[in-house]
Nucleic acid binder design. Structure first.
Lengths: 338, 338
DNA sequence: TTGTACGCGTTATCAC
DNA sequence: GTGATAACGCGTACAA
């Protein structure tokens, strides 16, 4: 493949001049500029980003390690991040941790070796020594969606407390008293926070939470289904089930359907995380929607600031309740959806 | 960040020896090996993949340019490709063309500049000059899911003809005669092939296709919804609608629901492309499933072969019909799902 | 078994 | 305005 040298030779100038033309880093005669450009076109020259990166110590690349690429939440997050990154001239290299610490570390390692300019990380539960090193090394780092305790890293996330409060009020208003929650992993900040908020809000609304109504899963569909089975097998099953993420809600849905139960007639269902197809279910699912696209954009913006050496504030957006019809809402109360 | 030089100095050896230890490219005394490894650990040395790539002229990276990252088909495809690539020691850089030729070219260009070892491309409709150059340049290239006519590039894809035939037979068996098809863009090979197969199979089964029953969309939900609206507004609407991809099926579903029509009572619905949540709809959607994960794996395998300099055969897998309950199937005919 | 020295393709610093 | 050249970090031919 043609290099600057070839271009220089063909244009009858030095490599320095070629570089100057290509990056217009210094004034060049119109005549030579044309000659260089002509040579570039003739040779089909493509600058070698690898060599440039070695020289400039910047790759124009940011890493994004997400929890699970099959989870629509992360997919949309990735897309939003990529849009914003492209606009800022960055490329994004995505790593899929598949909710496993070892896979997360694998990707972090290769991203480091590839010398990404910064890293967006949705950390898995465990705080690995590699992640700790990252912080110490001073690599521009921003946590996305999830936090790790005791690490001084800016985090971009959405707070769901208010929305969960709104949901609890909504359920109570609809006459539900026995509300169950399927929480995510307690090791994940998102898992913990949603559970805490649920407990607090239930108490605040004077609703008791029986211990057997507090199930827990791993943010995957299968665990949501299993938890729902246990709940429905209870001598006195809950009137409403609130799943801690969209995949567990899917599992819950399956189990309810498999038993031939009706939503919301036999049991109400609500989900943390909204996904496009919730609108298309019958009934449409009442859910708590995170501002996913803005999360992705703001995360990239924050990282870009850190890379530029500026100070970075943590970002905390707010999730909101989207009322649909899976909790026994009267016919025309449908929310705005998305 | 520490380099081989630093490691060499600390270990009291030459850079060559450090390199030898790290790649065990040549025998080294156990004693020096230990010293080097100790130095590596102490300095927290991470090899610089950028420099290595410049030297070896290989990045250990493959590019994957997909049509639309929000389409579950491509998401799953990407994940499968990534799994296979990781097992083979490659990293995948994903570019999202968003079904736009200019965005596709943008990503192809940056991937080229980053010197990916090979490229997996789901080409958009138009055959751009950049893509033509790619072929001429001899960059290891494999088309995935879609082909471009007149280009000598191995393609990994799934043929849907048999499955479409099975679907037509299935619909006919269920008593449907007026079957409509919402095709994808005729410029896309996948769009064309599905339409052709539909026409051929309808004829083969002695079913006429009225011109007004042949709608076309752009593989996005909105177009599927609009096409469905036109179909349902017909003086004599079709008894069954077959959508050319999962997103257009989603749009069709919306329009049908919005009109308060019942599936399959008022109109039957089937989709090309199966997605996990089709199972969870009521009724579950009868669909044609592509072997998505195997497509991804085989594509990476083929590309790896090309990179290694071996000959590469095109791969053609088969899609299959998954019978569920959206076409008026009797209660217990449900297929195996996925 | 180990060390020295060159070159990969760029950009940047210095002269001219 | 332009050209020669050093340097980025690494792998490797060649020498020792």
């Amino acid at each position: 493949m043609a290099s600057v040298k070839d271009v220089a030779r063909l244009a009858g100038v030095s490599v320095a001049t070629v570089s100057r033309v290509l990056n217009d880093s210094a004034p060049v005669t119109e005549r030579t500029r044309e000659r260089v450009l002509a040579a570039v076109a003739e040779l089909g020259y493509r600058p070698n980003a690898v060599a440039r990166s070695l020289r400039t110590d910047a790759t124009g690349t940011i890493g994004l390690v997400i929890g699970d690429i099959l989870n629509p939440f992360f997919t949309e997050l990735a897309r939003a991040a990529e849009d914003e990154a492209r606009q800022r001239g960055y490329s994004v290299v995505i790593g899929n941790a598949d909710e496993r610490a070892d896979l997360q570390d694998h990707y972090v390692r290769t991203l480091l070796e590839r010398r990404v300019d910064g890293l967006l990380l949705c950390p898995t539960a465990e705080i690995t020594s590699l992640v700790r090193d990252l912080v110490d090394d001073g690599l521009p780092l921003v946590f996305l969606d999830r936090t790790l305790p005791g690490l001084d890293v800016p985090t971009v996330r959405a707070d769901g407390t208010a929305a969960i409060g709104a949901l609890v009020a909504h359920l109570k208003g609809l006459g539900h008293r026995r509300v169950a929650f399927i929480s995510g992993p307690a090791l994940l900040s998102t898992g913990r926070e949603r559970t805490d908020a649920f407990m607090v809000e239930m108490a605040r609304h004077g609703l008791a939470v029986r211990p057997e109504y507090l199930e827990s899963g791993d943010f995957q569909a299968a665990s949501g289904r299993a938890a729902t089975a246990r709940l429905l097998d209870l001598p006195e099953p809950p009137e409403a089930i609130f799943a801690g993420d969209n995949l567990m809600a899917l599992g819950a849905l399956d189990e309810i359907r498999a038993r031939g139960l009706a939503i919301p007639g036999d049991v109400a269902l609500a989900s943390y995380d909204d996904v496009p197809w919730f609108t298309h279910l019958d009934p449409p699912i009442t859910a708590i929607a995170q501002p996913v696209r803005e999360l992705g954009r703001r995360a990239v913006a924050a990282l870009a600031d850190r890379i530029a050496g500026g100070p970075v504030e943590p970002v905390e957006l707010r999730a909101r309740l989207v009322v649909r019809r899976s909790c026994g809402e009267p016919e025309r109360e449908e929310g705005s959806g998305r």
